[in-house]
Design a protein around this nucleic acid. Structure first.
Lengths: 141, 141
DNA sequence: TAAAATTGAATTGTAGGAAATTTATTTTTT
DNA sequence: AAAAAATAAATTTCCTACAATTCAATTTTA
């Protein structure tokens, strides 16, 4: 059992599957003009409507180095607006726009199209979901 | 069951866990002067000793756009050498160097240190490994 | 209250990754 | 054999990610 063989790693299929998954999303997301990271950001926006960059980062496990340019791009595209909090000027508040909200309808097709591609059984999908979250819990510090 | 809620996605914990895993590797890999992608590349090199860029890309699910600069960096650091195949000048052959080979001993500490951080049970780890590979099989086209 | 510490976002620098195009080489077709 | 097609790596462009630093605003402390 060679500990440095690619086949003996848990990390490698995790890394490779994550990239393949994003790649599979890409053509569907292109149709609504989003990248994968923008898509999961919009998921939070569709739910919360208004959120600070810090809280957004905690939801997505991303920091301002990734989010700042991404949110500027979403703002350019008219999907969100950005402004400083009145109470504490350090906090930048991201708010969804009318246009961002209306994109949700078209985005509903994305998980639908993805389901057709990933044909894991429900049991497998649930098991995988639980194991990934268990692992994430251990790793996330 | 909102299909656009972050919590209802299988993709998100996959994406987040993969990034957290790489982040956890980083300090251990820093000690031997490798990034995560360089590390999995060296795993193939330690095993194969000599391999074409195309075959390397198929092993790692990476293309020349990612591998070319990465291999140049490994070459700069003296871990591999690169030269065109005599039989077919289109193929670039990557060969491990003495220095690259000797790095393997120090690299053995990495999976050892990682095991201490990821405390999934053996059953969970095996189940996760199998499910990820099953998913990867479906996605990899 | 003035100075020091903390906080939050932005910035900088480095390294992926992916898609699309380019360049060089080889193979296949006429 | 010359032209066309195919192949492999490199390059280009764009978008993440992360670490480390900077900058501004707010709290805490002396």
């Amino acid at each position: 059992m060679d500990p440095l063989r690619l086949e003996n790693q848990l990390c490698f299929p995790l890394y490779a599957a994550a990239r393949s998954m994003v790649k599979l999303y890409t053509p569907f997301l292109n149709e609504i003009g989003l990248t994968y990271t923008q898509y999961i950001t919009m998921m939070v926006m569709w739910e919360k409507k208004s959120v600070g960059v810090k809280a957004l980062g905690e939801s997505l496990y991303l920091d301002s180095g990734t989010l700042t340019p991404l949110l500027k791009k979403l703002e350019q595209n008219g999907l969100v607006s950005r402004h400083r909090s009145k109470e504490d000027e350090r906090n930048l508040i991201v708010e969804i726009t009318e246009k961002g909200d209306s994109l949700r309808q078209r985005a509903l097709k994305v998980p639908e199209q993805m389901r057709k591609c990933v044909t894991l059984s429900t049991e497998d999908a649930v098991a995988l979901y639980k194991l990934l979250n268990k692992m994430l819990d251990q790793l996330k510090n």
